[in-house]
Simulated scan of single mutants.
Amino acid sequence: MSAAQAVALKGVSISFATRDSRFDAVANVDLTVGDHEFVAIVGPTGCGKSTLLNATAGLLAPVAGSVEVFGKPLKGLNGQAGYLFQQESLMPWKTVLQNVAIGLEVAGTPAEKARQAAQTWLERVGLARFGDRYPRMLSGGQRKRVGLAQVLIRNPKLLLMDEPFGPLDAQTRLVMGDLLLKLWSEDRKAVMFVTHDLDEAIALADRIVIMSAGPKAGIIGEFSVPLPRPRAIAEIRHDPAFIRLHRDIWDALRDEVMKAYS
């Protein structure tokens, strides 16, 4: 395996037990993500996008195939990954600063040093003055920024993102996308980003992977994104290359979406 690959899924199949049988979520999936590459995964509802993220995180074990991370077989939890879920993971009884610092503290960083690092990260996500507030006092977009800082403070080599901006309104999603690109551009971590939003996928990613409808979902295509960086999401959507790529991806995806809803 090339050292330039952050993730390699090889022939991965994942099944879940049901009351009477087993449900085959994904089957024989091959997928690589290069180091420093931003890959978006799109597909119809229930096609196994999150399942692939969970396998890469070490939260699910494949029934067949293998997962390799930076050239080594994954055994147990993926300690090199940071995971930003769609659902919030902030602890409501802790302040914003404490929520961001806790990942370092749990790893053994002295409390004062962890809190200094947390304050730096709050500054980077535009929340320098909010450290003493509690999550209930923040807007949805602000809580997402705290969650992003909470993950990135540990400096993971791989970032797993499962519909992280899904619950947000359209304007806040644009702001969060631009913030993510700004932070990502500083060290270009490997990213696996699950989304249902084609505009979001094209605006953010280097490459887009398309999954088929389940059960036994697989990868049916991929597209490179030829748009230059840096990108401003609101403006890039008017680029003719963006519009053409959106049309081509939807042409490849349309039938699978219809299958999922039939």
Rank of each mutant, 00 (worst) to 15 (best):
Asp248Glu: 14
Asp24Cys: 09
Val209Lys: 02
Pro240Tyr: 07
Thr120Cys: 13
His36Phe: 10
Thr195His: 00
Phe223Thr: 00
Arg129Pro: 05
Pro230Leu: 10
Val175Asp: 09
Val100Gly: 01
Thr172Ser: 12
Val26Lys: 00
Ala107Leu: 15
Met192His: 04
Glu235Cys: 08
Ala241Met: 08
Val106Phe: 14
Ala205Lys: 02
Leu148Ile: 12
Gly65Phe: 09
Met137Gly: 10
Leu77Cys: 14
Ala64Gln: 15
Ala64Thr: 15
Leu180Val: 09
Pro226Lys: 03
Phe130Arg: 09
Ala201Lys: 02
Glu68Lys: 11
Asp169His: 13
Val29Tyr: 01
Ile202Asp: 01
Leu158Trp: 04
Val7Trp: 03
Val225Ile: 07
Lys94His: 12
Pro167Asp: 04
Ser262Gly: 15
Phe242Trp: 10
Leu159Thr: 06
Val67Thr: 12
Met176Pro: 01
Ser262Gln: 15
Cys47Gln: 00
Arg22Ser: 12
Arg229Glu: 09
Ala201Trp: 02
Lys216Gly: 06
Gly140Ser: 08
Ser2Met: 13
Asp30Gln: 11
Trp121Met: 10
Lys144Thr: 06
Val151Pro: 00
Thr95Phe: 08
Ser262Leu: 15
Pro44Phe: 04
Gly221Glu: 05
Val125Thr: 03
Asp162Asn: 13
Gly131His: 07
Ile233His: 04
Lys113Ser: 13
Gln142Asp: 10
Met258Phe: 13
Val42Ile: 13
Glu186Asn: 06
Val33Ile: 13
Leu183Gln: 06
Arg133Ala: 09
Leu204Thr: 04
Pro73Leu: 12
Ser185Glu: 13
Arg145Phe: 04
Val194Trp: 02
Lys157Trp: 06
Ile233Gln: 06
Glu88Asp: 14
Ala114Cys: 14
Thr195Tyr: 03
Val125Ser: 02
Tyr134Leu: 07
Ala81Cys: 12
Pro226Ile: 03
Arg124Tyr: 07
Gly141His: 05
Gly43Val: 06
Ile219Gln: 03
Trp250Lys: 10
Asn54Pro: 04
Lys157Arg: 15
Thr51Arg: 03
Val7Asn: 02
Ile243Ser: 08
Ser21Glu: 10
Glu222Asp: 10
Val125Leu: 07
Leu253Glu: 01
Gly71Arg: 15
Pro62Asp: 05
Gly65His: 12
Ala111Asp: 09
Asp30Ala: 11
Ser262Lys: 14
Ala117Leu: 11
Ile102His: 09
Arg124Gly: 08
Leu60Trp: 02
Asp255Glu: 15
Ala81Glu: 01
Lys10Glu: 14
Gln5Ile: 10
Ile236Arg: 00
Phe223Leu: 09
Trp121Ile: 01
Thr109Tyr: 04
Lys144Phe: 05
Pro44Asp: 12
Asp162Val: 07
Leu159Trp: 06
Pro240Asp: 05
